[in-house]
Design a protein around this nucleic acid. Structure first.
Length: 894
RNA sequence: GCCGAAGUGGCGGAAUGGCAGACGCAGCGGAUUCAAAAUCCGCCGAGGCAACCCCUCGUGUGAGUUCGAGUCUCACCUUCGGCACCA
């Protein structure tokens, strides 16, 4: 009964490869469609079932569009720079290039085994010299426009990884990859001036068809409007500038705070306070981001200095405190404790005055129990008194500008992008510096590198390739490449130079890969203008939401720079964006009561309500006894089933099935290779689409893929019964409705309901005495984007030919991939006679058969003829009739 | 704390404001079989009823709008994702 998926899938994958069926070509007069997947990092563990989810969705769209007559560009490549290959190199001495090649081989084989319609001739690899060349070329564009610059700034240094990380790569004070602690440390860095594009990056989101990611990016950019206000420092020429979004509260400023890492902090400090402030500044420097974020208790030290309030002339003290960040705004604030929670807390702790200047109802109060941060009416505010917040802000801004005390200012949370990494496996930065030396720095002779004079490589010197290294270990804050002396130092016109030893972050290659697909073998240009006009912009981009602010923000930034350089012609690269939801693995939960050494004392069922979170120490405890509890999991093959319920095989406690992120530690990882082997690629594809809405998080169930396999077997069986008989009216109507439904669902990426529509049609056809060939043909066409191998096979078989016929396999034209998509007749999609439910007072009491456009009188008459309706309306008067033809008849009686 | 998304059978999920639970999984009953697997047919939200019928309840909780609410409005609860001393 079951078809031989291994034979079928092997045959058609070979066919597509032999004939290059999915080569992307422009043909005159055809519309184009560029459908893009986020390309993978080829890790050593291979594909997991999350990858094929988005890839299948785009593949269905690509195949569908092709059948609709579009020229389709659907490429794939490798984001191959990255830490794991390098860590493996450190452990084994294998060059990352070799590991990377090997992993790419595995990924490519796995993707091909899923039958994706990629144009493999356009494969790109971010580590290939031919690709690196253009990444560096773009870097030079940035450099020449002043958008790439060096600075000595406190950066996120991750000692465990031996590199700095971008702000976007640090989560809760830990590295995004690996979860290692991150500390702030000043280092010479390359940065990209993404802040210069902050406004455009925020504003241009408006025109994009993107999900909630737009809001995330707006939040990350964090634009806020306010004022820059100048506070003179008492007894000094110095002026302290602050940024505030609440200029209306200026009269309430009772002290100031300067960040400990502000360059002028020690300068302001009086001699008497110098020792205390220095100690505080040093301590703040040593604090990791993790400590800063977990301990929010306010700390700070008085600098001894005072500022003059620019409006009242009052002297207010200047503190330093680490709740003010050196990197945001001006690194100093005016503190308004009455109207800012943080300032309120600090003022309470240090006994500083709290003066209300905005009152919710306009009545001044003397005591405040908490900061009032909302809008209200100004009090105790001189010229602002009686004004509501919005007007008070505007008036104060005008006043500040008129008096020359301050001005309007926009501030962003977004920081410039720290673009250098101290690792080996990345693109070298194509910059070098003059060196002062009396000997040969390659032999370790004394030398001095003048980092203030960066010299860019010429375009024709690209690519600058990585040197061979014996030791890939990171740790040198100047970068792992410092060890490649022969590579690093060189002579030109008798003068010594040193190459930049930092490399680019992994994001560099993925910032522009979608452009290289246009013309991947071009050795003269990054891509030809014609190839750009042929395919850009990307019509549909699908990938994980974990890239919502990282990759997607960086890529948009580079694209805009290239736009300004005249390299690209659109201001945005990705018109429509969709994030596929993560696929979770099933595990079975139980609780273990453990002692101090982690030994299991006894087991508890997975739904035990006595288990609660331990708020003091983290983890979980028993509410009744306070004993420590750990959550443990079993995987499906370890459990014991009794009466249809899962139990622990040793402890015998009831298990609770839960969906968790797939991880090696939990043992709930599903390998697509196993699924392809056992059920076939088509079954995997159909199941991943059938699981639920594309964007949603979904738990994997192996029994589910089995159901999809049954569906495909049924299609196979039905198709083989195809005969030359006319389709009955009912069948023909269902076929039309199915074609319509599948078409509309694919267009809207509702792939789960498209599959279910196909199931309904197959179930219908399977129940027929004789199966009309015309119906099967359209079924197979609609199925082909979802299950392309089986569809190819059946497409030739239902025409009475043998799929394994070598002559047929040699013919590039027989593929179903180039067949026109079936059409439907709208008139056949609506039924003439429909069953209309009859409600009495909103409750369904009967059903009547009516023409879909029957008038109200007819409907009412038919309804009142129904026995059940008569019973429900007996002895009552019909007061009102609500009738929607073809949908509902509601009789209101009383 | 702030922003965003979501709560529907045993499970995944479906429903232009109009018969809640399509389709699939699991389960139950039957056919086939020496038997099993596979396959095919039927049942499958909860409660009531001797009973097909039928009746009542039912889409996180509580209000509201409406002839009619899973769907719209407000408040709340829970879960997930993101951000988090951003002045």
């Amino acid at each position: 009964m079951a078809y031989d998926h291994r034979a079928v899938e092997g045959r058609w994958q070979a066919y597509w490869e032999r004939h290059r069926t999915f080569r992307a070509e422009r043909r005159p007069g055809r519309p184009k469609y560029y459908v893009l997947d986020m390309f993978p990092y080829p890790s050593g563990s291979g594909l997991h079932v999350g990858h094929p989810e988005g890839y299948t969705a785009t593949d269905i769209v690509a195949r569908y569009k092709r059948m609709r007559g579009f020229d389709v560009l659907h490429p794939m490549g490798w984001d191959a720079f990255g830490l794991p290959a390098e860590q493996y190199a450190i452990q084994t001495g294998t060059h990352p290039q070799i590991t990377t090649e090997k992993n790419i081989g595995v990924f490519r084989r796995q993707l091909k085994s899923l039958g994706f319609a990629y144009d493999w001739d356009r494969e790109v690899n971010t580590t290939a010299p031919d690709y690196v060349r253009w990444t560096q070329w773009i870097f030079l564009k940035l450099f020449h426009r002043g958008l790439a610059f060096q600075s000595e700034i406190p950066v996120n240094w991750c000692p465990a990884l031996g590199t700095v990380l971008a702000n976007e790569e640090v989560i809760d004070g830990r590295s995004e990859r690996g979860g290692h602690p991150v500390v702030r440390q000043p280092l010479r860095q390359w940065q990209l001036r993404i802040t210069a594009y902050a406004d455009r990056l925020a504003n241009d989101l408006d025109g994009l068809d993107w999900p909630e990611t737009k809001q995330k990016q707006r939040d990350w950019i964090g634009r806020s409007e306010g004022a820059l206000v100048r506070f003179p420092v008492k007894g000094s020429e110095a002026v302290l500038e602050v940024f505030t979004t609440r200029p209306d509260t200026l009269y309430g400023a009772t002290y100031m705070v300067i960040a400990p890492d502000h360059p002028r902090t020690l300068e302001l400090t009086t001699d008497a306070q110098r020792e205390a402030v220095s100690a505080y500044v040093d301590a703040a420097k040593r604090k990791s981001d993790l400590e800063r974020t977990t301990n929010k208790e306010k700390t700070g030290v008085f600098t001894g200095a005072h500022a003059i309030h620019p409006l009242t002339g009052a002297e207010i003290p200047i503190y330093t405190a680490d709740y003010v960040l050196g990197a945001y705004g001006t690194g100093a604030i005016m503190a308004v404790p009455a109207h800012d929670e943080r300032d309120f807390e600090f003022a309470r702790k240090f006994g500083l005055p709290i003066v209300e200047v905005v009152s919710p109802d306009g009545t001044p109060r003397d005591r405040l129990d908490a900061a009032f941060t909302g809008d209200g009416v100004n009090v105790r505010s001189g010229l602002l008194d009686g004004l509501p917040t919005e007007q008070a802000k505007a008036k104060m801004l005008d006043h500040l500008e008129a008096e020359g005390i301050g001005r309007r200012q926009v501030s962003y949370k977004l920081r410039d992008w720290v673009f250098s990494r101290q690792r080996y496996w990345g693109e070298p930065i194509p910059i070098y510096f003059p060196v002062k030396t009396s000997g040969d720095p390659r032999r370790g002779d004394p030398h001095e590198i003048d980092y203030s004079k960066p010299i860019p490589l010429e375009e024709d010197e690209l690519p600058l390739q990585l040197p061979e290294l014996e030791d890939y270990r990171p740790g040198d804050p100047a970068g792992a490449l410092t060890k490649a002396l022969e590579w690093r130092f060189f002579q030109k016109d008798g003068q010594w130079f040193a190459r930049e030893t930092n490399t680019m972050p992994q994001w560099a290659g993925s910032c522009w890969y979608y452009l290289r697909y246009l013309d991947p073998r071009n050795t003269e240009e990054i891509f030809s203008e014609k190839s750009y006009d042929d395919w850009m912009p990307v019509d549909l981009y699908v990938g994980g939401s974990e890239h919502a602010v990282l990759h997607l923000l960086y890529a948009r930034f580079w694209h805009k720079v290239l736009y300004d350089c005249g390299v690209v012609k659109h201001s945005e690269p990705f018109q429509k964006l969709v994030h596929q939801g993560m696929i979770l693995g099933m595990v079975y939960r139980w609780y273990a009561v453990v002692d101090g050494d982690g030994k299991v004392l006894r087991a508890l069922p997975g739904d035990d309500e006595d288990v609660v979170a331990d708020k003091e120490h983290g983890g979980q405890i028993l509410r009744s006894s306070g004993e420590r509890v750990e959550t443990r999991y079993l995987v499906e093959k370890e459990i014991q089933v009794r009466d249809g319920k899962p139990f622990h095989p040793e402890h015998g406690v009831l298990l609770v099935p839960v969906a968790e992120k797939m991880s090696k530690a939990r043992g709930n990882v599903v390998n697509p290779d196993d699924m392809v082997h056992e059920f076939g690629a088509d079954s995997l594809r159909v199941y991943e689409m059938f699981m639920g809405p594309l964007e949603q998080v979904k738990p994997w169930q192996t029994s589910g893929i089995q159901g999809c396999r049954r569906f495909l077997d049924k299609v196979d069986a039905v198709a083989r019964r195809a005969a030359d008989v006319a389709a009955a009216d009912e069948t023909e109507r269902l076929v039309h409705r199915t074609v319509k439904k599948v078409t509309e669902d694919v267009e809207a990426l509702r792939l789960n309901t498209a599959v279910s529509a196909l199931m309904i049609l197959v179930n219908h056809l399977a129940g027929l005495e004789r199966v009309p060939r015309s119906a099967v043909e359209r079924l197979v066409l609609c199925l082909s984007p979802f299950a392309p191998h089986l569809a190819e096979e059946l497409w030739v078989e239902i025409q009475g030919q043998r799929a394994d016929d070598p002559k047929l396999q040699a013919d590039p034209a027989i593929t179903i991939a180039n067949q026109p998509w079936p059409t439907w007749d709208e008139a056949l999609c609506v039924d003439e006679v429909v069953t209309v439910p009859v409600q009495v007072n909103g409750k369904v009491r009967g059903r009547v058969e009516l023409h879909r456009e029957a008038d109200e009188a007819t409907a009412r008459e038919a309804a009142l003829a129904d026995e059940a309706v008569q019973k429900a309306t007996a002895g009552k008067t019909v007061r009102k009739v609500v009738y929607v033809p073809g949908r509902i008849l509601n009789l209101i009686v009383g």
